[in-house]
Design a protein around this nucleic acid. Sequence first.
DNA 1: ATGAAAGCGCTAACAC
DNA 2: GTGTTAGCGCTTTCAT
Lengths: 349, 349
Amino acid sequence: MKSVKPNRPTIIDVARIAGVSKSTVARALSDASNINAETRKKVMKAAQSVGYERNHLAQSLRSGRTGMLGLVIPDIANPFWAEVARGAQDKAAEKGASLLVFSSDWDPVREANHLRALRHARVDGAIVNPVEDSIDDLGRFGMPVVLIGSSAERFPELSSVGSDIVQGVRLGLNYLENMGHTRPAILAGPLGRLARVRFMRVVHDYFIERNIDPAELLVEDGEYTVESGTQAMKNLLKRSGDRPICVFAANDLMALGALLAVREAGLKCPGDVSILGFDGIPAGVFADPGLTTISKPARKIGDRAMELLLDQVSGRVTHERIVLPCQLTDRGSLLDVKDTAPKQMSSTG
Amino acid sequence: MKSVKPNRPTIIDVARIAGVSKSTVARALSDASNINAETRKKVMKAAQSVGYERNHLAQSLRSGRTGMLGLVIPDIANPFWAEVARGAQDKAAEKGASLLVFSSDWDPVREANHLRALRHARVDGAIVNPVEDSIDDLGRFGMPVVLIGSSAERFPELSSVGSDIVQGVRLGLNYLENMGHTRPAILAGPLGRLARVRFMRVVHDYFIERNIDPAELLVEDGEYTVESGTQAMKNLLKRSGDRPICVFAANDLMALGALLAVREAGLKCPGDVSILGFDGIPAGVFADPGLTTISKPARKIGDRAMELLLDQVSGRVTHERIVLPCQLTDRGSLLDVKDTAPKQMSSTG
DNA sequence: ATGAAAGCGCTAACAC
DNA sequence: GTGTTAGCGCTTTCAT
């Protein structure tokens, strides 16, 4: 075993073989216009013969662009975010770009680290769903950034893609109301998170409009995980007088966790407790009954965000704030109690 | 708005400010031994003051190492693979490396593209689960590679991490047998895929040992997706005389798809049909009853694979073939028919 | 302990 | 059309 040629061939090797200068090789490789067809063919053959492969590092160093993009999301193991990642991934691949995916695990420190890693890798741009609102640096991040989710509100100067929370929450609340659930318990996200604030604001407004005091609503906090959903539901089920018969969860994982708690308590869904989720993850199909939920267009969010980012990277300055509508997916976890309970017209009060 | 300094500061800027040469700056930054403590402090302060950030591209070009690793898996939207990715991701982050994750979508062409992208990005190494066995180039891939999954069999010279299929399948088959299911229908992966061959080989051997002709078994093919699982189960349920009362699926997604088909047909699981899965994805918890399955240590697979890869990258040549055991997770989708049906001792035949 | 200088592999003016 | 030359920002001898 003698190492014949430890290093990969460079344009210089190719140039020598083809009998031209290295700039000619470079031109041939980047199919520039000003080059003889014959010469190109010759160069290409030479390149082929030594198994030449462009060194992106050198190319990037020179051109200042790496062809790499970044994506920072809270949790790649959450199917919703996995879908977003796929959408972004696919679009990037389509355009010949590579995507660096980072999962912050809802941890601001890890998020900061990932953001730093992206800068160091010299990515051409990034799509970010900031966990904390403490991220004030995004504005001067020094590269094209597209936001996903609630934080868009905090950085109106940045492009963003998200689902229409207002429309989605109202859609859900209205659907519940039509089924006779006029005062659902709310399973909200973590206190202090902007997404929670936005969610609750819509809920608040919705009930105010109907002359119902939002303070009457039962609200439990969760961490967007199955476990926290189970725990929150357990808390609700502990209540004696006002045990809720309907729960609206801020995401599907918590909704499914709640379902588990209901089942564990020996109760039936939707017989005893109706559950409405938010996200539209595939796992909701498998529950029995299936989880009724407000579906966000996850794949599309990733796709559009990447599109915006690529536009920005290539100089087309398109400041856009895209809001995609949510959809209701009824799979049976809601019981219609409209005709069961005596309907009380709360018109004038 | 006048642009003060469009370009990021380089070591030259830092050097000028600190009043030293650029090599001194480089030394300070890479905490070399041969440098005065005072000088270093001075340099660091200068770097700080201009917000200097190392250019990894230049560094990589010089040193030949990028600090980036690659991961190529079939489907990031499949929770099992998402977990593998997380395991790898976390370990990489722990060591200060970045991970490029690619999803091939079971498509050999996309896989080849991704592999090429990795080479172009000059990653220091890669973890791969080859979709097709057509990938013969892996051996001469020109960089450290760690294999995940069945293909390890094809490339014994490469390091690999995987779950113990033989142990896992036998564990499942044995568990079924103990519950009285002596001839489960098999919901296998796609024809031609090595993973399928390995799975079926174990099944084959298992029944041969028990003097049962494996050809008697009902076998349906699937694509590792929910939809294909549903379709396969529908096919099985169509049978008149020998409709199976037990199905062993090669992955959880197909198992859950089968569950959907059973439900849709108005049948009960496990009352009418028992279902056993393979993977151990979280979604199996939500089905009612929960999906009983053979759990693979997904997170750990990613973690160990990354560990091996990092070892290889840093020169510690550790050719290892790690096989992690599977575990049985009983969540109730199996009915014990041992005492129901007249038990026939198949001892001597 | 520090500086000078030579590249890593490529691109982009600029000549001819 | 093609060759020459000068870097991109950094690391790494080799002097001093």
